[in-house]
Nucleic acid binder design. Structure first.
Lengths: 120, 120
DNA sequence: AGGTTAATTAACCTATCGGTTATATAACAA
DNA sequence: TTGTTATATAACCGATAGGTTAATTAACCT
């Protein structure tokens, strides 16, 4: 049970139902019943998903009478964007292959190091 | 047990140990033992983490003698970046508050709709 | 007050997660 | 051949995830 924010955010995003809920909230506030409608799932299940999203800070809730409408609060996604951006150069411009090649060289060197260890 | 690629990727990223492993691999290929070294964790635990990363397509493995060196394959992170980018406008320029305000209006209208329903 | 609607909570179930220890495999080194 | 090093697999364990049904809370409407 990780407590770091990023882990909680990633975990919240690792479920297709929850991502669909977020995507729905892009078009505006919605009640729990409205959010539940597209899914073949009971209300308590949706309630739980919302609690996960709320705990991750991805959703906030208001109260109007017996409704507790949800809205998107996307701030935590900025951290995700920042994190993933550190790896951008590794998927752009076929750098994966280049990386493999560089690592290959590195490994060759390490092997040489191993066979010659205790050389002194 | 989601099978969609994005869920698998997010789930793989939702663990700090696994993210630390990816971050280590930025500086080049590494053996399992090398990867395990910084963590207070047994080798089988690291082996399992690597299997998760490999299954998510975030890590690839070669074989050199009894070593099975790992390297970063960041391609799946592009999908993450693309997904999260759809929400960018919601965290930039304080749009969260604006969104809340817009949703507020929307809800007011809906309530009016409810109380007047069956009007015809 | 009594009923309806919206949502949550409680209790439960099964499966997966993240770790362990102990054992096995595979390649090298003497 | 025998041992050593690197890694993986098996079996297990407690905790969490994701769902269910049934009961509860809360606000509205007659």
């Amino acid at each position: 049970m990780p407590v770091d924010h990023l882990s909680i955010t990633f975990a919240a995003l690792a479920d297709p139902t929850r991502r669909a809920i977020l995507s729905r909230l892009v078009s505006g506030e919605a009640s729990v019943t409205e959010l539940a409608e597209p899914f073949d799932m009971t209300m308590p299940a949706i309630s739980k998903h919302l609690k996960v999203l709320e705990h991750a800070g991805l959703v906030a809730r208001d109260r109007h009478a017996q409704w507790r409408p949800c809205r998107l609060t996307a701030a935590p996604l900025e951290d995700v964007a920042d994190w993933v951006d550190h790896y951008r150069r590794f998927w752009e411009e076929n750098l994966d292959r280049l990386g493999g090649f560089l690592s290959q060289l590195q490994t060759e060197e390490k092997k040489r190091g191993h066979t010659k260890r205790k050389r002194k």
